[in-house]
Amino acid sequence: MNEKKSYTLNDAIKKLEHYCAYQERCHKEVIEKLQQMHMIPEAIDVVLVHLIENKFLNEARFAEAFASGKFKIKKWGRSRITFELKKKGISAFNINKAIESISDEEYYSVFNELAENKVKLIKETNVFKKKKKFVDYFLYRGWESYLVYDKANELIK
């Protein structure tokens, strides 16, 4: 009863073209998908080469889209974005390019706005506990510690 669906090389290519066209993917995600499809390593290599040659798969484009999305939507800082891209096996060169694509002006503007809103939301009366909650929130989201501590000292007294 537990039969594995088998894919021909052409079926796998079509399926992965759709998978990559739907959303930007990194090499690691595509390889994992092919392994779940029970493809042999040689077939995985053929499919990867096809996807790269036909511009379905591009690590630099993925890194930039990922960094931009996580910054704009989830409001992550550069440290968290870098960490998550490293986990996905993206090269240091592409990580740096993606991080540089976030303008400093926009970065600091978003941080300041987030910080001011977060301070208002923390109901803690004890100054030290309030600072800790503030700092923990921003460090978890990957904002640089010097920014977080300076802003905590500025806003919480």
Rank of each mutant, 00 (worst) to 15 (best):
L34M: 15
Q36C: 13
A115P: 00
N2E: 08
F138G: 02
I102S: 02
R80A: 14
K118H: 01
I13D: 07
I102R: 04
S79W: 06
K120E: 11
S79I: 15
D136P: 03
I102V: 06
L16C: 12
K123I: 05
Q23W: 09
A21Q: 13
V30Y: 05
V135L: 01
F83C: 07
K5G: 03
M1K: 08
F83G: 04
A152F: 00
C26I: 00
F83H: 12
Y7M: 10
K118T: 04
A21W: 09
M1N: 08
A43C: 06
N96L: 13
N153S: 05
K70Q: 05
Y7W: 15
V148L: 04
H50C: 09
I52H: 07
C20K: 05
L85M: 04
I40T: 12
K118V: 03
F111R: 04
L48E: 13
Y140M: 09
A115C: 04
N10G: 10
S145P: 08
Q23T: 12
W143C: 07
S109V: 08
N10L: 15
V49N: 14
E84R: 01
E124C: 09
F66A: 00
D45F: 14
V110G: 03
F111W: 07
C20W: 06
V119C: 01
K88V: 05
Y146S: 13
K75A: 12
E53P: 03
N10Y: 13
L147Q: 12
